[in-house]
Design a protein around this nucleic acid. Sequence first.
DNA 1: GTGGGTGCAAAGTGTTTGCAAGTGT
DNA 2: ACACTTGCAAACACTTTGCACCCAC
Lengths: 176, 176
Amino acid sequence: MLDPKVRWLAKWSSYTLVVSSEDRKSAKEKFLEFIEAKGLRLTMQRMAIIDTVFRTEEHFTAEQLLEWSREKDHSVSRATVYRTLPLLTESGLVREMDFGKDYKFYDPNYADHPNHNHIICQDCERIVEFESEKIEQLEDEITHNLGFSLKSQRIQITANCEELKKLGSCRNKDCH
Amino acid sequence: MLDPKVRWLAKWSSYTLVVSSEDRKSAKEKFLEFIEAKGLRLTMQRMAIIDTVFRTEEHFTAEQLLEWSREKDHSVSRATVYRTLPLLTESGLVREMDFGKDYKFYDPNYADHPNHNHIICQDCERIVEFESEKIEQLEDEITHNLGFSLKSQRIQITANCEELKKLGSCRNKDCH
DNA sequence: GTGGGTGCAAAGTGTTTGCAAGTGT
DNA sequence: ACACTTGCAAACACTTTGCACCCAC
């Protein structure tokens, strides 16, 4: 395993090498193909951003992505992050989510689980994902009955930790 | 039926009279009670806004609410609309919705159908509502199994009109 | 009369964009 | 070389807020 700093300063040729040894290489490689197919260029800044996105398990905001990307390449600017996010969502590998906050969240796990839904803890803002074939089936049925064909769906559940009620505080209170 | 202009210029005492003859009086009266319970005042501007909200069947934006309210009382300002909206959502009678646009939508039908969900046509932006006890039950079950207690939920389905596919165009294409 | 409410305009906040300089191919 | 990209800072769009005046109670 290379020193992360070194890895990030490396040129593209050695970079792919690292990529192919990563867990999430699949989604990342798909995105690199997407970029290539569109005739776009692989700049150092984009690489830093892309790697951050596909190395992350959590949902993140534009600001967090900027911060994390800068740890890898200090030259990444806010503008580039905001210009790269639409590419990510356009590729279908990252999903933009709106929880009614003033900023958007981005979900890098979308590629693997295109129909997953979210539970957001009101107390700690922890986000948990789930999938349900039964619900999907019902949604599809209802949508069809109303004269539409379902394109995509999202469920957002706002909830409280059971822990909070029992213990008076939430274990994850400061996890965000 | 009074001339709308006159009705809106009337003082509070005669105003309630009109209210009680309205279809949506129930939600509106609940909100007036909510305001009173909080010890807030009933200004002409608030009345114009409140009446607009509870007379409306459609989903609306802050800007639309301002425009409509101004038709009733030209002195209503944008600031007052934005200061009144939190009261409306806080009362539980209006629901704030985020469809990922830069502005929020507000749903005045929330009081009557607190768990309704939305299907948005990708082509014409028409919004259709639906409810499903089965889905609610499943959601509640899943949420509980994951260690949370469900507070609220929302489903957004993006779909295409079946008509569009069959006829090549959507009847509602220009309805928004 | 008084404390909450209002309009106005300025400030905020997350996001987008014009432009000149930089860089991957 | 050329066209795509970038960083910077100004611009944007929606929303919030400070302040002096106003008005419902």
